[in-house]
Write a protein that binds this DNA or RNA. Structure first.
Lengths: 256, 256
DNA sequence: CCAAAAGTGTTTAAAATACACCCATGC
DNA sequence: GCATGGGTGTATTTTAAACACTTTTGG
């Protein structure tokens, strides 16, 4: 199926397979070179950026929809995702944007479920930057990691959605372990600390951080030190998956 | 408009004013005689209980929809409500229930937006028990406060929704002040403590509780003691609305 | 005057914070 | 050999938890 006919079909008949008025938008965090990143898509023609999003199949749980979208944009499977907020301003409509898009494609259309109001559910995920192959969808030119501190202009309320996700991530840091998907299999304590500092956007005490993290038992110290590094070589750690998952549910019980 | 025609209109044309596939369900907590209560509706004919719920007008924010529903079921206005979770199991459909309902009313209908799948957003509110005049909707026999510890059987996943709301309420107790809507204008410290104990379902130390609550500055001590009470008369307090609202946003910073 | 509930303060334990020294490595 | 970052321990402050005595009131 070529591009135009795919688009036409989606705008004409999409409501037969998807729930109307409902969408999912994903805030996908990654961590690279000590910078927190978010995966964004750049719209064709308009050039503005947006969160990877999609719709809910008529027989699909929203969580599944979010995972499907994540898989399609990153190739990743089996990632922990969670809904964090519903955005339902009545003005949330992509009518003008979509109509302009269609004009650019060269399609005329008066009516479409895609011109109606959408309520969107925000989902967030923390993923391993190095494993992601960013993939654009048919509405987008590009799929790229963007620095959290240098975000481009974003479509609709997507910036608000992103900010909400980030704020919730910061809040949850004290109660839930993070890093399992954000860091490689084995990592050093300073690397883990950088991750926390990046998300919280402030410095943490090296010694206290280590003590508290160790106390949660989510880490396993490996008998291996990082090689070929200037200065004293740091030890490698990996996550103790069993305790990590326990902490995901039960909480960590510390304050950073 | 009589009952049958109102129902018929809602099932036939409701999708012209409401968003399809989307509903709001409200968990409305009250506190009376030291028992935490929830407002439930009893369905006509079937007799099973449900959360007060409703739909979102095509030009309405979900928060507004939730407030409108609250107002209609309780008469209350201007209550702090918050969404807490989206429930989206594909099996969430009231098709059979609604068809049975229509049969009982004496209406035949093959198709209706009301037979389709619904994704629902849970909202919770804490309200002043004594100010509520429970009002049933047209699908219900009765609207009643039910003890949280003796809940009747509930429709669909409403029990799960309620449990989720309660759990979130317990979690939030450490970070946000409560009581403003749950207690009368002026109240005593032991009354406030009972409220916390009821929600948390455990005893708290009288002295430590008082110290911590006082430290948050959300209370104003009044120059007035409760009269006509056995034993030593407790002092009255009221909430300092300014600090209360500040704490709602910024958090309380204590652990009970 | 006594039983029952409310008001208040102190002692103890735990947790968070601040801080200093030694160690290993590449240049 | 020295600058740099990593590893570890301890003293201090803050916060939470446990606990006891006094006060007031109705009966």
């Amino acid at each position: 199926m070529n591009f135009e006919s795919e688009i036409t079909k989606h705008f004409n008949d999409g409501h037969e397979i998807y729930l109307r008025h409902l969408s999912v938008d994903c805030v996908i965090f990654g961590f690279h070179q000590n910078i927190l990143k978010v995966l964004l898509l750049q719209a064709k023609y308009a050039g503005i950026w947006s969160l990877p999003g999609g719709f809910i199949l008529k027989d699909e749980h929203m969580d599944e929809a979010a995972k499907r979208i994540l898989k399609n944009r990153t190739g990743l499977d089996n990632i922990f995702m969670q809904q964090f907020h519903v955005f339902s301003q009545p003005s949330r409509s992509t009518k003008e944007i979509n109509q302009q898009f269609l004009r650019n494609v060269g399609i005329e259309m008066k009516e479409s479920w895609m011109f109606e109001r959408f309520v969107t559910v925000g989902y967030s995920a923390l993923v391993d930057f190095s494993e992601v192959k960013p993939m654009a969808d048919i509405y987008s030119n590009a799929s790229e990691w963007q620095d959290i501190n240098a975000l481009p202009e974003m479509m609709l309320d997507h910036r608000e959605i992103l900010d909400t996700a980030l704020q919730q991530l910061q809040t949850n840091l004290n109660y839930h372990p993070i890093g399992y998907n954000l860091l490689p299999e084995k990592f050093t304590m300073p690397e883990l600390q950088k991750l926390y500092e990046t998300i919280l956007n402030r410095k943490l005490d090296r010694r206290n951080f280590q003590r508290k993290i160790i106390a949660t038992k989510v880490l396993k110290k490996l008998n291996e030190i990082k090689k070929g590094v200037a200065h004293k070589a740091p030890n490698y750690y990996k996550f103790d998956l069993k305790n990590y998952k326990k902490a995901l549910k039960g909480g960590m019980g510390f304050e950073l």
